[in-house]
Design a protein around this nucleic acid. Structure first.
Length: 484
RNA sequence: GCGGGGUUCGUCCAGUCUGGUCUAGGACUUCAGCUUCCCAAGCUGGCAACGCGGGUUCAAAUCCCGCACCUCGCACCA
């Protein structure tokens, strides 16, 4: 099973490991990033900035992780991010009560009822446990946000369940101070927190996790004027529609067929797909999946998940949602502030299309898609520009002054590149260790180095070597590590 | 949260049924040295574990009870 192999590598090499693991009461869903995991994530975020933020002229901000209750009253998370759950007295299975009631009564059950109101409905309709027909126990509301008390007054606040709320809350100021014009994308990378009932699968379902979110604000009336679309209109997308059929065709055809809500959405889906191609995720094992009405988040009127096929099935990496003017209108209503902006001569409340990327699972997908077990070795074939350690520096043997010379090469490189010096065991062992940790290159100092000042560069993927003068080594590495 | 299956060095495995000889053993990894002129070679030596808490017992890795975590299903989701 590949998932196990990848996880084993991640644990043994210190990419990621459980938080507070020496204590037995450490809760699930919290993971540390070790040196290699942190390095990989930093490079992933660098690539995200390069391929999305800078390429598209987005602006980036960083909001607070703790926000007051009103933010989430407005966003709908206080009402809708909670699941009413009842346990069966007989078979002990937990059931989502709202869904059960809707099935029973064939009516829409309003969101955000109190426990007692759900209880009334259950009693009135005589609803039983769906799996065994037993008596249902009392209702609990389970909100997935972490609640905090601020200051001496212990005022209600929450750890943000998604990074985007600060983008909406700060929209007006950002728009003004950066002198934005619609359409404009505002991005944020950082941590979000969700009190999952049962986190599973290591870094794929976390309670504390990284998101990289992009909120694109636009005037829905002006989609035909969205000129950037032309650059991506011929990009081929694979979309699995909500009815289960799969369509592969040009971005423009999806827009014409009304499968995509507008040209702007098509453009950003194409951009997103290209970004993932650059990370080394295998696009032949990737698709967009259109979400049906029941699957979408409460704020979403149209949604597509970008999914990647892995050894544990299709994995959602990005949620792409058409949020309409839901967020800005709600924040405007609750805060009693006007959050509309001028678009030419029109005053509009912009609509939002969002790309909400799960960073940790993206890293997992990149790792799994680039991991291979060959006959003689295990290789983490990360793109050089994503590799947390870019070069190993080794003396061929540990005498004749080679270690000293290799140390000096290491010191020459270590400020500009992340390098790892290793002199233990045989040279072959060091190459193999590097392969497993994803070092794309290895610099070896040998006896010839002492006489002519050249070293060898050994390439991880081909295992071939070439000689480079020390004077050209930094430039050579820079070229090898460039984005491609 | 519910149900099934699990938890012994970093990893894999032995020991658990049938409590004592376990001061918990081996292999791989790792570390220190030796060796080594390019792909996990060899030699010597070292570090390193019974998930946590309670109980039974003269005695617990071993039996019992809680809890935690892992894993598979349900549910939820980036």
């Amino acid at each position: 099973m590949e998932y196990e192999s990848v996880m084993k590598l991640l644990l043994e090499r210190g990419f990621f490991f459980p938080s507070s693991e020496i204590y037995s009461d450490a809760p699930a869903g919290f993971w540390e990033a070790g040196p290699l995991g942190l390095g990989l994530r930093n490079r992933f975020v660098d690539l995200w900035r390069r391929e999305l933020i800078r390429r598209d002229g987005m602006i980036e901000m960083e909001g607070s992780q703790i926000m007051p209750a009103s933010v989430f009253r407005a966003s709908g998370h206080l009402e809708s991010f909670a699941d009413p759950i009842a346990t069966c007295k007989q078979c002990k299975s937990a059931t989502r009560i709202d869904k059960l009631l809707e099935k029973h009564t064939r009516e829409i059950i309003p969101e955000g009822l109190r426990e007692s109101e759900y209880q009334d409905l259950i009693d009135r309709h005589n609803v039983k446990c769906p799996s065994c027909g037993g008596q249902l126990d009392t209702i609990r509301l389970f909100n997935m946000m972490f609640r905090l008390g601020i200051g001496a007054g212990n005022d209600d606040a929450y750890l943000r369940p998604e990074t985007c709320q600060s983008i909406f809350v700060d929209f007006l100021r950002l728009f003004k101070v950066m002198r934005c014009k619609l359409p404009i994308a505002i991005a944020q990378h950082g941590k979000s927190f969700r009190n999952e009932i049962s986190p599973r699968q290591s870094i794929i379902r976390l309670r504390e996790f990284y998101q990289a979110e992009i909120e694109i604000f636009f005037n829905p009336e002006n989609d035909t004027k969205f000129e950037k679309f032309d650059a991506e209109k011929d990009t081929v997308l694979r979309i699995k529609k909500a009815d289960g059929t799969e369509v592969v065709q040009r971005c423009a055809d999806f827009v014409d067929a009304n499968i995509l809500p507008n040209r702007l959405a098509g453009y950003y889906l194409a951009l997103l797909q290209k970004f993932y191609g650059t990370t080394g995720v295998d696009l032949n094992r990737a698709r967009f999946r259109e979400l049906g009405k029941m699957e979408r988040a409460f704020y979403s009127s149209s949604g597509f998940d970008f999914e990647v096929e892995t050894s544990i099935g299709w994995l959602e990496l990005v949620a792409c949602n058409y949020r309409g003017d839901y967020d800005l209108s709600r924040h405007s209503a609750v805060s009693k502030r006007d959050i509309s902006v001028m678009d030419g001569l029109d005053k509009v409340t912009p609509h939002v299309f969002e790309l909400s990327m799960g960073v940790d699972r993206s890293l997992y997908a990149i790792l799994e898609h680039n991991f291979r077990e060959e006959e003689q070795r295990v290789v983490l074939g990360l793109k050089p520009f994503l590799a947390p350690i870019q070069a190993g520096v080794f003396p061929l043997i540990t005498r004749d002054g080679l270690p000293e010379q290799a140390q000096s090469v290491y010191r020459q490189l270590c400020v500009d590149f992340s390098c790892f010096y290793d002199a233990s065991g045989s040279i072959g062992r060091r190459y193999r260790r590097g392969d497993e940790a994803g070092f794309p290159f290895a610099i070896t100092v040998d006896h010839q180095t002492l006489s002519d000042g050249t070293v060898t560069i050994r390439y991880r993927d081909s295992m071939e070597q070439s000689r480079v003068p020390l004077t050209e080594l930094s430039d050579k590495l820079r070229v090898l590590l460039a984005y491609s």
